Amino acid sequence: MTQPSGPEHERYDTDLRAVISERGQLIGLAYRLLGSLAEAEDAVQETYARWYTMSRPQRDAIESPGAWLTTVATRVCLDLLGSARARRERYVGKWIPEPLPERTAWVGAPAGTAADPADRVTMDESVGMAFLVALESMTPAQRVALILHDVFRYSFAEIAEITGRTAPACRQLASSARRRVRALRPAEAPAARQAVLVRDFRQAWEARDIDALVGLLDPDATFTADGGGLARAALHPIEGGPRIARYLATLAGRTPANLIILERTVNGRPGLMAQWEGATVAVFAFDVVDDRIRSVWAVRNPDKLRSWRGGGGQEAV
């Protein structure tokens, strides 16, 4: 293929950089909608494939490539969400969104080092595990309307054009989704307090101190594990602080002596990571409300721990 030259070549390079620069936002959008980094990567790959299958004149005719890419990525995600329910019904045990590390250790990586897609997801409250779990209770249309409007600041007119619905309908979808989020997740504790509670939780767990664990857990707390049929995990949520404490104490007694628990940032919040013989075997996310741990999510499915193979970023606290 003949490459353009002169001013046309410069415009070609500028347009190419502009299109590629959208990848970070597209990954962030797709991850929030799908709860899976692997599926988000696939959705964005499909979006770019559709862009590059168009002829050059067709691409040049698009006034805003970024808006076009967002529209296509959203529609690809909607298609995936439409089939996700059936896939989740076949899933072994409970399905939990894929946890993301905060890889501060990658800053200043050698030139040419490929950035992990997880690094392109901005860590804000919209990627907190509690928020992502709340999204799972919504319809695909509610999820899209809420994420596009509340997170990415698209107008309802723009969302209507993307989804093929009316602006008032999109407004109603976002409003109902917002109410659901508020009902499912009250205001969480400040990050500093969360860090203290998670550290106390780790210490009590390692000591198999059931009383200490009960004191840290909300009486109505829930522990949910995700092994995906590929790793041993509780198939059903464990409910109630005392039951969770006894379960964790029993679990600690069965773990190998060389299993280590490290404090890590999980989806922008204080969390834990378990390593055995240098490999990450579990990641734990927490929801802290009213100075108690209300939810614990334990991800053991190895397919969801790809981003943690390097140790999950920062050194142990």
Results as ranks from 00 to 15, higher is better:
residue 200 D to Q: 12
residue 151 V to I: 05
residue 262 L to M: 07
residue 303 D to Q: 15
residue 306 R to G: 10
residue 197 L to P: 00
residue 75 R to P: 12
residue 59 R to S: 00
residue 44 V to K: 00
residue 162 I to H: 03
residue 65 P to C: 15
residue 161 E to Y: 15
residue 306 R to C: 07
residue 123 M to V: 06
residue 203 Q to A: 10
residue 145 A to Y: 03
residue 214 V to D: 12
residue 190 P to G: 01
residue 7 P to I: 15
residue 252 A to K: 10
residue 48 Y to T: 06
residue 146 L to W: 01
residue 38 A to Q: 12
residue 262 L to Q: 04
residue 248 L to I: 15
residue 252 A to Y: 10
residue 127 V to C: 05
residue 145 A to I: 03
residue 171 R to H: 11
residue 22 E to F: 05
residue 163 T to E: 06
residue 292 R to Y: 13
residue 115 A to E: 15
residue 199 R to E: 12
residue 58 Q to K: 12
residue 259 L to F: 07
residue 231 A to Y: 05
residue 170 C to F: 08
residue 189 A to D: 14
residue 243 R to P: 03
residue 28 G to Q: 01
residue 41 E to L: 05
residue 284 F to W: 02
residue 285 A to Y: 05
residue 21 S to K: 15
residue 270 P to D: 09
residue 257 A to S: 08
residue 231 A to R: 04
residue 101 P to W: 02
residue 273 M to T: 05
residue 132 L to Q: 04
residue 76 V to I: 09
residue 153 R to L: 13
residue 36 S to F: 02
residue 35 G to Q: 03
residue 184 L to R: 09
residue 146 L to I: 03
residue 5 S to V: 11
residue 84 A to E: 09
residue 189 A to L: 05
residue 128 G to H: 03
residue 72 V to T: 06
residue 180 R to I: 10
residue 192 A to R: 15
residue 112 G to M: 04
residue 238 I to Y: 03
residue 78 L to I: 02
residue 284 F to I: 11
residue 123 M to T: 09
residue 148 L to H: 04
